[in-house]
Design a protein around this nucleic acid. Structure first.
Lengths: 154, 154
DNA sequence: CATTGCAATGTTATAACATAACATATATAA
DNA sequence: TTATATATGTTATGTTATAACATTGCAATG
């Protein structure tokens, strides 16, 4: 389980990476989208849409509305830069965008830190289950809630 | 993928089974709870809380309110008789309550039919992933969305 | 350089999902 | 009887998300 925040350099590297991906794929990484992405990725923990909205209002001192945030989130999810945790209606940044399609998560209920856990054996197992049921996967939600090592010690 | 509705006898068997479990565990399977359970399990497809509320209103012709439904759902989920599909804010009945803790799902986006797919190899794989990350699981959400055989043929 | 088209954003309103808080009822045990 | 616990009724509100339409800005085309 992740113990501490990502380093500044790691954050910046991820942001640059997304910037590049957008440029090379002709995706408009607009100010709003960049802003929302940065808020999500810097948050370290899953963040909710209305928290993002509050932050934007604080930063810009302008009126902002839910659709602005949700549209940006949609863009970021569509392109794999952000994931939604359905079990807690929250959003997390992806630290290795475009390197995998599916993303699985461990979420600590106590400290709220999360970790992507996208190992291939798990992916394979899920694929096999789908095949076995004659099912064509379009997207998978795997969210494992519980306690990380630190929090289960306490 | 499930092709058709469960048979009446299968439904009744499940309802009786739940009834028994409640009796032997001293759980109050009250009228409201039974009613909500029956609505969910007979629906065959994932159903939403407010749809359940509408059905109750139709059946009873009395004023009913969201908390009534959500309380019943909470009871049913706590005791493993119903599961929530977080990815679509919907509820499904469990056809083998108390025989497993975790329940995984295949959900067809086209016809909305769902199937529980709780094979042990998948469960083991998830456990191993958790162990590998020093993580203690309290609950797992695995929802695989896509298309069932029938719908992918069309 | 219009003007047309398109993608993104602004804005208002409301839909959809869920729970807090307190009142009432019902059953059962002390 | 009274106390206690469990369940339900009821009002209000909190939280999450989207529909619908107006406006802006920019780039391609004539």
């Amino acid at each position: 389980m992740k113990k501490k925040s990502k380093s500044i350099s790691e954050l910046n590297a991820t942001i640059s990476r997304v910037d590049e991906i957008c440029r090379s794929n002709n995706l408009g990484f607009t100010d709003i989208r960049k802003q929302v992405f940065e808020i999500i990725i810097k948050n370290n923990k899953p963040i909710k849409a209305y928290q993002i909205l509050d932050e934007i209002r604080n930063i810009t001192n302008k009126p902002s509305h839910p659709p602005t945030v949700y549209r940006a989130i949609d863009f970021l999810i569509e392109n794999g830069f952000v994931h939604k945790l359905n079990s807690i209606n929250s959003f997390v940044g992806c630290f290795h965008p475009k390197t995998h399609e599916e993303c699985y998560f461990l979420i600590c209920k106590k400290c709220n830190l999360y970790q992507e856990c996208c190992d291939d054996s798990l992916k394979d197992r899920i694929s096999k289950t789908a095949v076995h049921n004659n099912f064509i996967i379009s997207n998978t939600t795997l969210e494992i809630e519980g306690h990380c090592l630190d929090c289960s010690k306490k």
